[in-house]
Design a protein around this nucleic acid. Structure first.
Lengths: 241, 241
DNA sequence: CGAAGAATTGAGTCCTATCAAATGCCGTGG
DNA sequence: CCACGGCATTTGATAGGACTCAATTCTTCG
């Protein structure tokens, strides 16, 4: 039982690729004006409230999504309730890279999310006739794979403190790319402590304690909805170590 | 300092796609006879002794590889020596899916390995003119991504026993695919205990103790270079849990 | 047969998890 | 405006699973 994710009122996005803020960093960046017009015809704006589910692991993958704003958590669950977040999708990210028939993980909006939604079949057909689009999808997929392998290193071999610091630096990097390369000392954290814990393979208590310790160190400052990084050098040491 | 990986004597493989045992399960399965002949011209047989390094993380990616026999470990290291194995490449697997300019991880042969090696540039050029080959690479990449995400769940949220059992069942599945779907109760383990530990985010002692416990349980039997699964039902319970 | 590496086993410790309680935050409604 | 309730987060006390260090034992192979 969840909303279909249609935007209230008129189409907010999806019909307006030429004005799209995230196009340069998203899959669509490789399409020319003609192709964009074609894409617009296929796209449906899709808006989601915070905590709303976009799709559930194992369900038939009817749609693929291009996130235009907001953050989405992607996760897998074990039958006993243990959860592993496999990634956070930021604006510009694409959900459904595999174009497979069922979703390999669940996804829900962490904050209000706007996305371009496409019927998977139609999108796959477009990809079939546009090799450069396929090429782009492949680049995105292999980039995701690299991130996943880095995360394996993090989950398997790093301490709680290293995990948290690496996470913050990695997120900072991703926000910077979205903001035209401008890095900020403040890292926005729209996700909860529990989400962070489930991403890093820790408990919420350990995440909280580690934040507190780093704050006492003056390594960072906890601010509303984020952290301000005070000692970048030390953090980069910890993340590299 | 490592051998160039040229096979001793005449070309053993790489020039004989039509006789290739792993072609049906590998990337090349989508190529027709003409394309295979073209591919043969580009391919260079590449043989590697046990423990030999194929390539090192960060190096310029001169070659891509199609494994025809043997097992390769793929891993990342931290400056202080901690290691995370991000995957084991089996016959049919492709190394260099991303076609990027540097290798994102290191690779070495666990046992004697034979592979088809291609200059990355030439292979990329071929991919550019054969969209169905790109499509195939993309399928492989997204499959790898799914495996990586499953591994994230394993590393972040499973206990030592669950990790080991999931690993054994997963490997059994992969061997079965290679052997035409015939599953065997015995799982070959060409990798060392240390390799298994570094794949599962454990220490060698914990791996060893967990094996011993499962053997005392009569859940499995430790045999030379592998294990025989005695209580599949119990193992599947543990892996699902 | 003997050396070297791999694997196992044992004892003790530590990092992170667990359980529990207190505090902080925020939107609602009196 | 402020009290209240519900949820998120922090903090505290304790426990436990996996790690570390150390010593055998088992394999392999010259």
């Amino acid at each position: 039982m969840r909303s279909e994710g249609n935007c209230v009122g008129r189409a907010v996005s999806g019909g307006r690729c030429d004005a799209c803020q995230v196009r340069p960093v998203s899959v669509c960046a490789v399409l020319d004006a003609d192709e964009l017009r074609h894409l617009e015809l296929l796209s449906q704006p899709s808006c989601h409230l915070a905590k709303e589910t976009l799709f559930v692991q194992g369900e038939p993958a009817e749609s693929v999504y291009n996130i235009t704003s907001g953050v989405v958590r992607l996760y897998k669950m074990l039958p006993d309730g243990r959860r592993q977040i496999v990634g956070f999708a930021l604006p510009g990210d694409f959900l459904g890279l595999a174009l497979r028939d069922t979703y390999p993980f669940s996804a829900d909006a962490i904050e209000p999310v706007v996305a371009c939604r496409f019927a998977r079949g139609a999108y796959a057909a477009l990809v079939d006739e546009k090799p450069h689009l396929l090429r782009r999808l492949h680049e995105f997929a292999t980039h995701e794979l690299t991130l996943a392998q880095d995360q394996m290193m993090l989950l398997g071999r790093r301490t709680a403190e290293e995990k948290l610091v690496s996470f913050l630096l990695g997120l900072r990097e991703r926000w910077a790319k979205l903001h035209g390369g401008k890095v900020s000392a403040t890292v926005q954290l729209p996700m909860s402590r529990q989400d962070i814990a489930d991403f890093l393979g820790l408990t919420i208590e350990t995440v909280s304690r580690t934040f507190t310790r780093l704050a006492k160190d003056r390594t960072l400052l906890i601010v509303p909805d984020g952290v301000r990084l005070l000692n970048l050098e030390r953090m980069e040491m910890l993340a590299a170590a």
